[in-house]
Design a protein around this nucleic acid. Structure first.
Lengths: 201, 201
DNA sequence: CATCGCCATGTCAGTCGCTGCCGTCAGTAG
DNA sequence: CTACTGACGGCAGCGACTGACATGGCGATG
């Protein structure tokens, strides 16, 4: 007989989301989450840095998808091409099945400023990592940072729509629309001579 | 004889920044901040919602400057014009004198993820408010949100440079450069027919 | 097969952020 | 003079989080 059930971390994540949804985030105690899956508060904090992190610990694989997308872009890709590729690759795991789960999770987050803060921090870290990899592809500053933030913004805009009630379009589709809208943000006609971002660096 | 010295809130803010700088944010206790200006922990929490907020409670006047900038723009201004105006107006209070204080404050923030989270939340709120007012000027979604986030991103990029060691250019100057760089982000030549942002709506 | 060490977990005590409740007392209005 | 208000202090308590130490299956090792 096993001393401990396996998958403690995953069980804690699932239980936390359940409780955050049913009782509310602030009304839920870490000790409650832990006990609901047969563990103690102390063990919770061995798996997660704090009470919020239990909803965000998978963020690193999400971020890696963005970086993979950048790496997969053509060698002569422009900055806009790079973020388009990052968006395309990272959107893959967002299946229709995941949409329901995402809605639940996001509902909890938007209802709690403390969780929004954490999400913002994760997105900022994502933007920073994306900027680093864009810079490694030869795009100079501050263009790299601007492009990276635009990438995250586009994701955010598309994701919000994807989550909306009744929305059926895929995340990829929505991202492409937002991306096109971003491209129209610049009012000055780009000359054929140069655009530090438009053409291969 | 007065029962209490006036300006409790301001004294708490100054003392907090001092202690966060000298001892570090996490090593500083709220009770220490309060006692250092002759008050109690309980009073601290009457003025500020939490230990972080003491560095951010002036954010609302900062945000108002952005909104004033939007209001001051010409009636036929494009979205890009609107954010340019918001940036121009909001940059006014950032004098050279303030630069030293900003450096201190920002050094504390970048050293503490908890404070970064709060700053990100404030910037997100700023972006949201800017988006609302841009939308009120007739710019549709998702362009309004995209433009608002770009506005905040440009501010962030410029502010980071403004804070850098040895930097002497004004914030306005740096913002204009970043804004120009953003405008070059779009690679697709804008047709003269339409750009939902480039021309007056 | 016996032993050893690893490692995930439990237990416990303690600090600190934060809140509710109530008391205190100058100033101010009536 | 009285009553009320506003800014603060004191106190008790909860919950998030941490450090130190104990426990006991399990695989490796001889």
């Amino acid at each position: 007989m096993v001393r401990w059930e396996p998958g403690a971390k995953g069980r804690l994540q699932a239980a936390a989301l359940d409780l955050y949804v049913s009782r509310g985030y602030e009304q839920t105690t870490v000790a409650e989450i832990a006990r609901s899956v047969g563990l103690t508060e102390r063990t919770f904090f061995r798996h997660f840095a704090d009470k919020r992190e239990v909803l965000f610990s998978d963020q690193d694989v999400f971020q890696q998808a963005f970086l993979d997308g950048i790496a997969a872009a053509a060698p002569d890709a422009s900055a806009l091409d790079l973020i388009a590729s990052a968006l395309a690759v990272s959107a893959q795991p967002f299946s229709d099945e995941r949409r329901r789960w995402s809605r639940q999770r996001q509902a909890v987050i938007v209802a709690n400023p403390a969780l929004q803060e954490r999400e913002l921090l994760k997105l900022a870290a994502l933007a920073s990592a994306v900027a680093d990899h864009i810079r490694d592809r030869g795009v100079p500053e501050p263009t790299a940072t601007l492009a990276a933030h635009s990438c995250v913004t586009v994701f955010g805009v598309a994701f919000t729509q994807w989550i909306a009630d009744g929305e059926t379009r895929s995340l990829t589709e929505l991202e492409n629309e937002a991306l096109a809208e971003l491209a129209r943000l610049a009012p000055t006609p780009v000359t054929s001579e140069q655009s530090s971002l438009g053409l291969s660096r």
